[in-house]
Design a binder for these strands. Structure first.
Lengths: 137, 137
DNA sequence: CTGCATCCCGTAGCCACTACAGGATCAAGC
DNA sequence: GCTTGATCCTGTAGTGGCTACGGGATGCAG
């Protein structure tokens, strides 16, 4: 499938952006991607703007932004509407969520590694991991 | 509801272990909790062993273990079956997952905080957050 | 004009819950 | 014994962000 000048099939779009083909259709279904033109037979025909939009979404997802955040960011990224303050609010709210999760995971890592270390250390009678899970925390 | 000597309602079990009541039923449905005895009217009647088991599960969930891991841990924690090596394998596999996620989140935190900092800094022409999302990474 | 890759749509599954709806049961007060 | 209100019951559907099917249509090279 070649799809004329500046026209991409969904497969080409997916390959170019390294986004799963079914994910692209999912984004369209939830209204994150605008419905593209269609061929006579009903196949989707994408244009470069779609590629850029998918790339934007992919980058935002890679940074952990949720779909609703991305929806808002896409609106704010529209030409003539670049409100940096609102963008920064979304980003810094997300950043503090990331920091919360980070703190949580750091705590888990400390507890788990300490307990597993006890296991691989000197031959103890009972299992340190099970002991910890049994005991009140 | 008082539920005789050593008998708990699901509500009491949930309150005692700080696990959501509906989550307790969910654990029973997926076979993580054994079905308790019932009153004449069909209400669940729990015993102290159930409280200990829910507490174990809660501790393991708080450490981020998945349900299937917990299922295995509960089997290994059964009396006469304490195989510390298998427990340690599960725990250290989980620990390395935690470390992977930690590395990922740390990366996100660095990128996001750097970008948001650029935002609150000197008055720049465009939005650093949107610029990053638009640019190839 | 045949064959095969790619595409279409719709639905169901993943994880670990959580939130209902619509009804039954329990225990206490009168 | 009866009412009241808290608690309990079952079953189903929703969350987020995809992913994986099944059963068919289309596109294009040979």
């Amino acid at each position: 499938m070649v799809m004329g000048p500046r026209g991409f099939t969904i497969g080409q779009l997916a390959a170019a952006t390294e986004v799963n083909l079914e994910t692209v259709r999912y984004y369209e279904r939830i209204g994150l991607m605008p419905p593209p033109a269609r061929t006579e037979g009903g196949h989707r025909a994408y244009e470069p703007a779609h590629v850029r939009r998918i790339a934007f979404i992919r980058h935002a997802r890679a940074l952990g932004f949720g779909i609703e955040d991305i929806r808002a960011l896409l609106t704010l990224a529209a030409p003539g509407h670049r409100s940096c303050a609102e963008v920064r609010d979304i980003a810094s709210a997300h950043l503090s969520e990331v920091r919360t999760k980070l703190a949580h995971l750091t705590r888990l890592e400390r507890i788990l590694s300490a307990t597993v270390d006890q296991c691989s250390g000197a031959p103890t009678p009972a299992c340190p991991v099970l002991d910890m899970l049994d005991a009140p925390m």
